[in-house]
Nucleic acid binder design. Structure first.
Lengths: 184, 184
DNA sequence: GGGCGCATGTAAGCCGTTACATGATTAT
DNA sequence: ATAATCATGTAACGGCTTACATGCGCCC
């Protein structure tokens, strides 16, 4: 039985000052993007369910010249649930399905040049990702008036940087190793 | 449109000498486990489909005192598909949904001790994982007569080791950083 | 007698993406 | 004109897990 963490993410966003589905989506795309994604197809039904379960209250606001807005606010019950989720230790690591490793594993009969090309293009993607993280981090560090979220944001970015950097180094090493192999 | 790589994994396994659904599952659980998982609920329908599409042939073998066995063999068409998949460069990195980072991000109002506990227990899981990889690698290196797959197997293990190690280091650093923060 | 290994499969259900549908305002 | 932004939602579909179903032989 695997837990679904998405509703907790939405409750968390409510406590962080995001109250409409639209705002939450914007926030996730902008800031949690590298370790959490979500689509409208999930958000709206999930918010509805949170209200049904008493974890959130909703208030519809009419706006002039803008679509109606539904503002969601966490209830005491929702706060309790969020708190106990935050306390619960993480039990299993995300099992990433890694397409590159899968290909590599079946590449024993491929020419070395093909394998090297795979590794080159993968390394390029990794470098891009690393660069993105680095840019966001620098932007945050330059901020005049950092919010109380900023340190936590930087921590998550550092995770991305550390693991991506390690993958780049692995790529380099692996390329050398492949070159040293005898073509059969 | 995201491609489904699972059928290619099965074709790859056929070329590597695994011919029944059962054998393939055993192999994946034993050797590809850290970057690819699959369940019977996927394997059997997928194999059926591969036969329908002409990528594999099947031969039913009756065994005495054992259940019937269906042996799948890759066809020339299947080989062609596998080859062109192996050539195609990987386009997107696996986006891991990371529960720990999600919790951390919403922990700005938590007590430091709670956050530190989260990090401790995460680090423990990471260390276990790292240890598992290390053990398998050492076992492979000690092998008397390594197969031609062994170097590729080690390469994938090194990926797991490198990224896990990086995550451990990040954990340590993050704990220090949290301790240095002012409790508000 | 019970559990494990071998061996194959199906059905229900969850999680999630994508495409579609609507519609006003504002900027180019 | 038309594209982007704001704003909410649904339907179809795909991938995958879990639970269930079957059944023989072997070992303890």
């Amino acid at each position: 039985m695997k837990e679904n963490h998405t509703p907790y993410a939405l409750l968390g966003l409510m406590t962080a000052g995001f109250h409409t589905g639209y705002e939450m989506k914007q926030m996730i795309d902008g800031s949690l993007n590298h370790f959490w994604k979500i689509s409208y197809g999930q958000i709206y039904p999930a918010l509805k369910k949170l209200v049904e379960e008493g974890s959130a209250d909703v208030k519809v606001t009419s706006q002039e010249g803008r679509p109606d807005k539904k503002e969601y606010v966490i209830t005491p019950s929702g706060e309790e649930q969020l708190r106990s989720w935050l306390l619960k230790p993480v039990e299993d690591l995300p099992v990433e399905k890694n397409e590159l490793l899968l290909k590599l594993f079946f590449s024993r009969n491929q020419e070395k040049s093909v394998i090297l090309h795979q590794l080159d293009s993968y390394e390029e993607i990794l470098q891009e990702k690393r660069h993105t993280y680095q840019s966001i981090k620098e932007m945050l560090l330059r901020e005049a008036c950092p919010s109380q979220d900023t340190p936590f944001w930087i921590i998550t970015l550092d995770y991305g940087l550390a693991t991506t950097e390690a993958a780049v180094v692995w790529c380099e090493k692996t390329k050398v190793r492949i070159k040293e192999m005898k073509e059969e």
